[in-house]
Every structure is written in structure tokens, then in C-alpha cells.
């Protein structure tokens, strides 16, 4: 089949979305499909989104160079506004201001301010209409599917994103490092994990992987708490190095609130490591069951600290939770995922 993968992307960034989209393109190619990747620039400022949606609406991708395009897989708003007789959406990233997030890093939409309320309504309407024009909608978590049903009355199917390959030593001995995967932004709650180290017994250490605008202040925090070598900032390691760090870990921490993706959680689970997450983490909740394959705790240094102390304590808890995690992690492969996405594409012979 000839397939276009469509994505709106902020120029000069390397975000998770784009990496996942590239993996999707590769997976489709690996299955013998002819794939091209269409990426229009994205400006995330809320007041520019409608204009950008209208630009996507100008594009008709039904054919290219005189040949039919069988399907479009659109990934995020406004890419699913594009015109094509058979478009599907996965993993669905809606405009944040159109549902429950009013404040973004790039501008606030203030409830009660008339112009902002109108913008939000128009965005919701454009988003709903575009989703309704899709042949099928797939999300990447049960939470997202439930939210879409509740807020828009639109049905969708959750399909988890296949995590990156685990380090082969997933059966290896449990170590002493709690690994937290960045980006280092205030919303990642890395600060909570650092504060938790003050109440966790040695030799447990915290390894912070990733980089971001909050790095300096987080390093300052670790210094102020006199944690010394108990908190290590690992920079920006490549994929295999992340797999190695996780494969040697005690556990993976996935603490950020309201996540749409569970990439860190799935990375830990596939490595046979328990995941410690918070009750408000969102997508990780689809996978982590407290006391069975990980621990769900309060988003406080004490709550996180207690969970780490439990895993590091005498007994075999970390190992048994990790083994359960390995068994319960969805073993969705890219092949299966692409199969679901393209299942309804009409056969034109």
C-alpha cells in the first residue's frame, strides 16, 4: 500500500512525538508498504492553531503525482484535518487547550475571558469535526480513549506504542539505582524524586536521565540537600545506554502528572523492573498495578521515599514485581500495531 504518515511538528525540535512517528514510518516500510512522511510546521501558540488547521485543510492527499494514496495515518492535531478518503489517527494528540489544559508554556487560554472561551469552543469544534471525518481513531492509552468518549462522544481503540528494545540483561540482578527519565522540566517532578532521596536509606541512588531547562535548578537542589553522589545526572545518553541503565536499575520512576504517554513505564517494565508511579500520572496507570507489578504512591517526597525503601528493603519485592511487570507489559509489536491501523483500508485491487 501507499501510505502517508502526517505530523505537525515544531521546527528545530527533537520531541518524542517525532521519534515515535519516525518509528511508525520505519515499521510500515519494514512491512513492505511504500511510505512517505508529510510534516507541516507546528506553532503551539493557541491563537494560531485555527489558522494552522485551515492550512492542513487545504491539502488533499488523495493522490500524489497522479497515483492514488491508499491511506493517511495522522498523528496529532491539526494533521488529522488533512483531506483523504481513508485517514486514521494514531496515537492522537489533541490541542491541549481544547480539553482540560488551559495553561500552556506558550500562552494561556483563560476560562471566563470571552475571546478565549470562543477560541476554545472553535478549537473543540474543529477538532471534533476532523476526528469525525476519520475512518478510525486509535489512541495510545485507555485513559485517552475514555476521555475522548466522555468529552466528544467519539469512539476509539487504544493501541500502546511499542517501547524501544530492552537491554538483553532484563533477567539480571536488581541493582540499587532508581532511574528517572527526563526531559528535565518542572512538570516532570524530578525535584520530588531528589527530595525523596533524603528519606531513602543508602545505598539506593537516583540516576536522572535526560536534559532540559530545569537541569541547573535540579542540580542546585541536589547540592543543597547534600546528596552528593547519591544523585547522578546522566545527561543525554543514547538508546542502548538508556536500556543499559534501566537494565541495571532497582526500579524506574515515572512521576509526571497527566501523561498522555507511558514511554518510561513501558521501558522499565520491558526490562523486568518495577515502576514507581503516582496516583495522578495518567497513561502509566494503564499498566502499573500497585503491589502486583509496581508501586503507586502519593506525589510527595515521603510517598516516593517510602516506595523506594520498600523496594530496597530485605526480601525479594523488587525482583518479584519486576518479573510480574515483564509478564504484564503489553507485548504489542510494530507489526501488530500497523496491522490494526491499516485493517480497514479499502482494497482497490
Amino acid at each position: 500500500m501507499r501510505i502517508i504518515v502526517a505530523e505537525a511538528r515544531v521546527p528545530f525540535t527533537r520531541e518524542t512525538g517525532s521519534r515515535r512517528t519516525l518509528a511508525l514510518v520505519d515499521a510500515c516500510r519494514g512491512l513492505g508498504h511504500e511510505v512517505d512522511h508529510v510534516r507541516l510546521p507546528l506553532d503551539e501558540r493557541p491563537h494560531t492553531l485555527l489558522e494552522q488547521a485551515s492550512r492542513w485543510a487545504l491539502l488533499n492527499l488523495a493522490t500524489s503525482n497522479g497515483r492514488r494514496v491508499d491511506a493517511v495515518i495522522a498523528t496529532n492535531f491539526p494533521s488529522y484535518v488533512v483531506r483523504h478518503p481513508h485517514k486514521v489517527v494514531w496515537p492522537l494528540r489533541q490541542p491541549r487547550v481544547a480539553h482540560d489544559v488551559f495553561r500552556t508554556a506558550l500562552g494561556d487560554v483563560v476560562p471566563g475571558v470571552e475571546a478565549d472561551d470562543r477560541l476554545r469552543e472553535r478549537l473543540m469544534a474543529a477538532d471534533t469535526a476532523a476526528l469525525a471525518s476519520c475512518a478510525a481513531v486509535f489512541t495510545d492509552s485507555m485513559g485517552a480513549t475514555a476521555r475522548l468518549r466522555a468529552t466528544r462522544g467519539i469512539e476509539s481503540t487504544p493501541l500502546s506504542c511499542p517501547p524501544p528494545p530492552a537491554d538483553p540483561r532484563s533477567d539480571g540482578p536488581i541493582g540499587w539505582d532508581a532511574v528517572i527519565l527526563g526531559p528535565l522540566e518542572p512538570s516532570s517532578r524530578v525535584g520530588l524524586a531528589i527530595r525523596a532521596m533524603a528519606v531513602v536509606p543508602e545505598p539506593v541512588r537516583l540516576v536522572v536521565v535526560g536534559d532540559g531547562p530545569a537541569r541547573r535548578s535540579l542540580q542546585g537542589l541536589a547540592h543543597d540537600l547534600m546528596l552528593g553522589a547519591r544523585v547522578e545526572f546522566g545527561g543525554r545518553p543514547d538508546g542502548p545506554e538508556v536500556a543499559r541503565l534501566v537494565g541495571d536499575a532497582l526500579c524506574v520512576l515515572d512521576l509526571a502528572p497527566g501523561q498522555e504517554e507511558a514511554e518510561a513505564t513501558l521501558t522499565g517494565m520491558r526490562a523486568g523492573r518495577p515502576v514507581v508511579t503516582t496516583a495522578d500520572s495518567g497513561a502509566p496507570q494503564d499498566h502499573v498495578e500497585h503491589g502486583r507489578n509496581g508501586l503507586v504512591c502519593e506525589a510527595t517526597p515521603q510517598g516516593i521515599g517510602a516506595a523506594l525503601a520498600q523496594l530496597a528493603g530485605p526480601g525479594d519485592l523488587a525482583r518479584s514485581l519486576g518479573q510480574a511487570a515483564l509478564k504484564t507489559v503489553p507485548h504489542v509489536s510494530w507489526t501488530e500495531l500497523v496491522g490494526h491501523l491499516l485493517a480497514g483500508v479499502p482494497d482497490h485491487g
Binding site: 510546521p41 493522490t63 500524489s64 503525482n65
Partner: peptide
């Protein structure tokens, strides 16, 4: 940005899709 001249009635729509401000994307 994709551009296709077929169907030809949509050619100017393809041109319009390019009539966009590319001087700034959010904070960039």
C-alpha cells in the same frame, strides 16, 4: 509542505497552503 497540481482546480489551494508565516514557531 506537500504540493500537488492535481486535481488542477485545487492548484491554487496548494499555493495558499504555502502562504504562511514561517518567521516564528512558538518560542522559536
Amino acid at each position: 509542505i506537500p504540493f500537488t497540481d492535481s486535481p488542477r482546480e485545487e492548484m491554487m489551494a496548494g499555493v495558499a497552503a504555502w502562504r504562511t508565516d514561517v518567521s516564528r514557531f512558538g518560542g522559536t
